[in-house]
Amino acid sequence: GPMASDKRPRTAFTAEQLQRLKAEFQTNRYLTEQRRQSLAQELGLNESQIKIWFQNKRAK
């Protein structure tokens, strides 16, 4: 629909990254900035991508 703007492409996470994020989520529903930074480095992701993933996951 018209609401779907092309400005922010959805990140396609790899299965491996998703597995890691899910495991982290089961341990911590809320990430500290430090955890998020190390996860971002570990997974080669953007911190904001991880932050948003957690927000979306909590919203469900």
Rank of each mutant, 00 (worst) to 15 (best):
P9E: 10
L43V: 04
S5H: 03
M3P: 15
K51G: 10
Q49N: 05
M3E: 15
F13R: 02
R35Q: 11
I52Q: 15
S48T: 12
A59S: 12
Q34C: 08
L18E: 13
E42I: 05
A23W: 09
Q37M: 08
E47I: 06
R8Q: 15
R10C: 15
R29Y: 05
F25Y: 08
E42N: 04
P9S: 07
K7T: 14
I52P: 01
P9L: 05
E47W: 03
Q37T: 09
L31Y: 01
E33R: 12
G1V: 03
T32S: 11
Q34S: 12
P9H: 07
P2K: 14
R8A: 15
E33V: 13
P2L: 04
Q49L: 11
E16L: 08
N28L: 04
W53I: 02
W53F: 09
Q26G: 06
W53P: 00
W53V: 02
E16Q: 10
A12F: 12
E42P: 00
R35A: 10
L18P: 00
T32Q: 04
Q49C: 11
A4W: 15
Q17S: 03
P9Y: 05
K7R: 06
R8G: 15
L21R: 00
R20C: 05
A15R: 08
Q37V: 07
T27P: 01
K7D: 15
Q49A: 14
K22M: 14
L31D: 13
W53C: 03
S38C: 09
A15N: 09
W53K: 00
Q37I: 10
T14G: 03
Q17D: 03
L43S: 02
E42G: 03
A4S: 04
K57G: 06
R20G: 05
D6N: 04
A15P: 12
R36Y: 11
L43T: 06
G1D: 15
R29C: 11
Q41Y: 10
R58G: 06
A12P: 14
L43F: 03
S48E: 14
P2N: 15
T11R: 08
G1F: 06
N28W: 03
E24K: 01
Q55R: 11
L31G: 02
G1R: 02
L39S: 00
K60L: 09
K57E: 12
E33W: 06
T32Y: 02
N28R: 05
G1H: 04
I52E: 14
S5T: 13
A23Y: 09
I50Y: 01
R10K: 14
Q26Y: 08
N28F: 03
A15H: 12
G1P: 15
A59F: 08
S38Y: 08
R36F: 10
R10P: 14
A59K: 14
Q37F: 08
E16C: 07
A23I: 12
F25V: 03
R58P: 03
R8E: 15
A15G: 07
M3I: 15
F13L: 09
K57H: 09
T11E: 13
A15M: 07
A4I: 07
I52S: 10
A12Y: 11
R20I: 08
N46T: 09
E42W: 03
Q26M: 10
G1E: 14
Q26K: 10
E24L: 04
E47R: 03
N46K: 07
L18I: 12
N28T: 05
E47N: 04
A40M: 04
K22H: 14
T32L: 02
R36I: 14
T32G: 07
T14Q: 03
N56F: 11
T32W: 04
Q49F: 08
R10V: 13
P2W: 01
Q34H: 06
R35V: 06
E24T: 02
Y30S: 07
K57M: 14
F54T: 01
S38L: 10
Q41F: 08
I52L: 10
F54W: 09
F25M: 03
T11K: 11
P2G: 15
A4C: 15
R29E: 12
Q26C: 11
S48K: 08
T27K: 10
F54R: 00
T11W: 14
L39I: 06
R36E: 09
N46S: 11
Q17M: 05
F13K: 03
E24C: 03
R8S: 15
Q26H: 11
S38M: 10
A12G: 09
F13Y: 07
M3L: 13
I52C: 14
Q37Y: 10
N28Q: 06
R20Y: 05
R29I: 06
I50P: 00
E16D: 08
Q37D: 05
Q37A: 14
S5V: 05
F13N: 01
Q34T: 13
Q19M: 10
R20V: 07
T14V: 02
N46G: 10
Q34M: 09
L31R: 01
A59N: 11
F25L: 04
K57Q: 14
F13S: 02
S48G: 10
K57T: 13
D6W: 00
E33N: 11
L43E: 00
L18A: 05
E33K: 14
R8V: 15
A15S: 09
S5N: 09
A4Y: 15
G1K: 02
K60E: 14
T32R: 03
P9D: 09
I50Q: 00
